[in-house]
């Protein structure tokens, strides 16, 4: 066996990752790509939670906002859930839907908020809550949707909850659904939704 000369490459010069302080200041950079990189780079940083929550509603670039929400969602804490849930009532459709999608990935912290969200005075917030529950990986999600179907006074919330429950609907839900039709006999869409669901 001949000798094999190993050409060991010179050690690569790798830049040290930016500090959390650097990334936090980068969140206010005029360049959205730098803001996005900073938001993602702050993944796992507890000290970044409050600054990200402060900035998420004011962020104008969807890609940056989504990066902020991704980093925040990974914490799945009460602070993050409460800080984001207020935006379910936002006038910004992009923000409220992005927040709903984010909350749906936070099964540890979101359940504690549900009694308040399900009882919110704003029926649009309750519709968004049904959207959250539709995708929330939590064993009680279907139970909460059933509560909304059974008790919510607004037909749009009830139909949103039925739609969210749709993939899991079985014969055991038929009485619940028919009860919703009885509560809103003049709502043709709700009746259609229930008929489609029980077929």
């Amino acid at each position: 066996m001949g000798l094999v000369r190993r050409n060991t490459p010179p050690p690569e010069e790798t830049a040290a990752p930016p500090s959390a302080d650097t990334l936090l200041s980068q969140l206010d950079d005029p360049d959205p790509e730098l803001r996005r990189e900073a938001a993602l780079g702050l993944d796992g940083s507890a000290e970044a939670v409050a600054p990200l929550l402060d900035r998420v509603a004011g962020e104008t670039e969807a890609a940056v906002r989504d990066a902020m929400l991704t980093t925040l969602a990974a914490h799945d804490t009460a602070q993050v859930a409460e800080g984001l849930a207020v935006h379910l009532a936002s006038d910004d459709a992009g923000l409220r839907t992005a927040v709903a999608e984010t909350l749906a990935t936070m099964p540890n912290s979101v359940p504690a908020l549900l009694p308040r969200l399900i009882d919110d005075d704003d029926h649009d917030v309750r519709v968004m809550t049904a959207m959250v529950l539709a995708d929330l990986p939590h064993p009680e999600a279907m139970t909460w949707l059933a509560v909304m179907i059974r008790e919510d006074p607004h037909p749009n919330v009830v139909t949103a909850a039925i739609d969210a429950l749709l993939p899991s609907i079985g014969p055991e839900h038929h009485e619940l659904l028919r009860g919703a039709v009885e509560r809103f006999p003049d709502d043709p869409f709700l009746r259609f939704t229930v008929e489609a669901a029980v077929k």
Partner: peptide
Amino acid sequence: DAATVRLYHTS
């Protein structure tokens, strides 16, 4: 995004 709404409007 709601399947039932799509079905209703489509119908």
